[in-house]
Computed example of a mutant assay.
Amino acid sequence: MDTGSDLIWTTCCPCDNCSIQTPMFDPLQSSTNKSQSCFASSCKELPQYGCTSDQRCCFIYSYVDESFIEGILATETLLFDDGAGTIKFTGIVFGCVHRKLKFIKFSKDAEFSGKEEVQETPMAPGSTDYVLNLIGISIGNTRLNIQFGVAQMTPLLGDARSIVIDAGTMLTYLAKDVYDQVANAVANVINHECFYHLSKICCVTM
């Protein structure tokens, strides 16, 4: 799951370099699956796409960790159980992946049972990304006095409080003035002194 990506995809039969334990979707067994033409607008919106010999949309989709997938773009009808019944979404564009490299495999221990207590927060409107409005940061039990209005406005997000939830990014990025306050608060909590040197942070015991 990568919340920073616009492409929905799943592994399909056959799939090269895919774990044999990974559930495979067989498009030939679905009456609602339809491959997209390489001339379709949905295909042309992909960063890297091409045409197969039968004019289907093939694509390569890469990520910042240098992993990538290859597959065929298609549409499908998706069914979701909301607890009260089944919700049907038709014509959902997704990638039918037949090759993937360098992806993390998660064990059954990572599965969500649905019985845990879950807190929800609404997404900010007006973006294709998963955007939240950051209203505060706490270190331990202390709420930091951060003025988010000082943070630089961005053309992509607009609101200076906006943050993108990207499960495909290993680091959390903050505006420098916000980051400085967080780093100093962490240093105080762990009784360390922080020295900023270029792109590195060194903490030494006091």
Rank of each mutant, 00 (worst) to 15 (best):
Q147F: 12
E117P: 09
D109C: 07
I139F: 00
Q147V: 09
G126S: 07
E120I: 15
Y130F: 13
F106G: 01
F148P: 05
D166Y: 02
A151R: 06
F112H: 01
V131A: 13
A183R: 12
I146Y: 06
Q181K: 11
E111C: 01
T169C: 06
E111Y: 03
I139K: 02
V182D: 04
V97K: 01
F94D: 03
A167K: 11
A185I: 04
Q147A: 12
P122Q: 11
F103Y: 01
E116P: 02
D180K: 14
D129W: 12
I137M: 04
F106P: 02
R161Y: 08
M153R: 15
I165W: 08
T128D: 13
M170Y: 12
G136P: 03
D180Q: 15
D129A: 15
E111K: 05
A167D: 10
P155D: 15
G149S: 12
G158M: 10
T154G: 14
I104S: 12
Q181W: 07
V164S: 11
S162F: 12
I165C: 14
K108I: 03
S127K: 11
D177Y: 13
Q152N: 14
P155N: 14
L134P: 07
V118W: 04
V131Y: 09
M170H: 12
K176C: 13
D109S: 08
T169H: 04
M153H: 14
D109A: 06
V182L: 09
N184W: 11
G140D: 00
G114V: 02
Q147G: 14
F106D: 05
